[in-house]
């Protein structure tokens, strides 16, 4: 059985936002809704300052809290591991939005388009989605045709890798092994991070290395709300505006690299 996953190589991401815009185009998302975000991370001071970019999107969890809480069965997990929303069943109650530990679900509340009063050709389908919850689908309509998700296809740094982690011959499986990637436990998301970057900057409480040789996950809260700072999804965009890193809760070991 396939298990589709996405990997972000933070050592390569240049924070160009190509993925965010490709996603908006592909999905015709309304103003203020981004299925994915690029968060600016910073640590260290001149002359040893570091900056990296953390991409976030729906983590396509193994046991998705959103699916569990959905009262109508609109949110569901497919056989290939992706988590989808059936808009026909969705009543827009928003329970899943609150439940998602990664804040990656978006209730379409306002009937607005990019340019007020105008439906552009790229929005003609998406304006039908109103009062429903939407989110990253791994570009289900593209991958079902054998294409890569829009954000992967249009990534200038080629730092996003998508594929089946159950297939040891897939590009993503090989990349995970060769680059000592970190899996966000219980999700379909992997990160490769620079050596000098604190893992606590990732959107997680518990991380585990996908490669067997790596050190075991540190014991942190692995249930309920994760150590994702409130507002991480929106902070990605807002933070860009003033170029600061995302805020985060103090890690259990107490970091010195708070980005406030």
């Amino acid at each position: 059985m396939a298990k589709l996953a996405m990997l972000f190589d933070l050592t390569k991401c240049a924070g160009c936002y190509g993925c965010v815009v490709a996603c908006k185009m592909q999905n015709g998302t309304r103003p203020g809704i981004n299925y994915n975000a690029v968060n600016v991370l910073e640590w260290g001071e001149y002359p040893k300052a570091n900056q990296k970019f953390l991409s976030t999107l729906c983590m396509h969890c193994e046991n998705p809290a959103c699916v569990e809480i959905c009262p109508t069965g609109a949110s569901y997990k497919t056989e290939n591991g992706t988590v989808l929303v059936d808009y026909e069943k969705c009543i827009g109650c928003g329970l899943c939005v609150n439940e998602c530990p990664y804040e990656q679900r978006h209730l379409v509340e306002d009937d607005i388009t990019s340019f007020p009063g105008v439906v552009a050709p790229y929005e003609e389908e998406s304006v039908k989605r109103l009062k429903v919850v939407e989110k990253c689908t791994f570009c289900n309509e593209r991958i079902s045709e054998g294409l890569k998700p829009a954000c992967v296809h249009n990534c200038p740094g080629k730092c996003r890798i998508f594929g089946d982690v159950e297939d040891p011959e897939s590009e993503i499986s090989k990349y995970i092994a060769s680059h000592n990637a970190i899996n966000i436990e219980g999700t379909s998301i992997y990160y490769v991070i620079p050596e000098n970057m604190d893992r606590d900057l990732l959107p997680l409480a518990a991380v585990m290395s996908a490669s067997a040789s790596a050190k075991p996950a540190e014991s942190k809260s692995s249930v309920g709300k994760y150590a994702v700072p409130a507002g991480i999804a929106v902070a990605g965009v807002a933070a860009v505006a003033v170029g600061v890193g995302i805020s985060r809760k103090k890690s259990s070991k107490g970091g010195d690299n708070d980005n406030e």
Binding site: C16, Y17, A22, G117, N154, K158
Partner: peptide, 29 residues
Amino acid sequence: IIKVESRENYPNSPLCSKGIASLQELYDP
């Protein structure tokens, strides 16, 4: 044009955020 994406097998590719947003400029009222 309802969608744009990076052209494969073209010397300069992939498109960046500006390239994708060319679609939004095309239909800017």
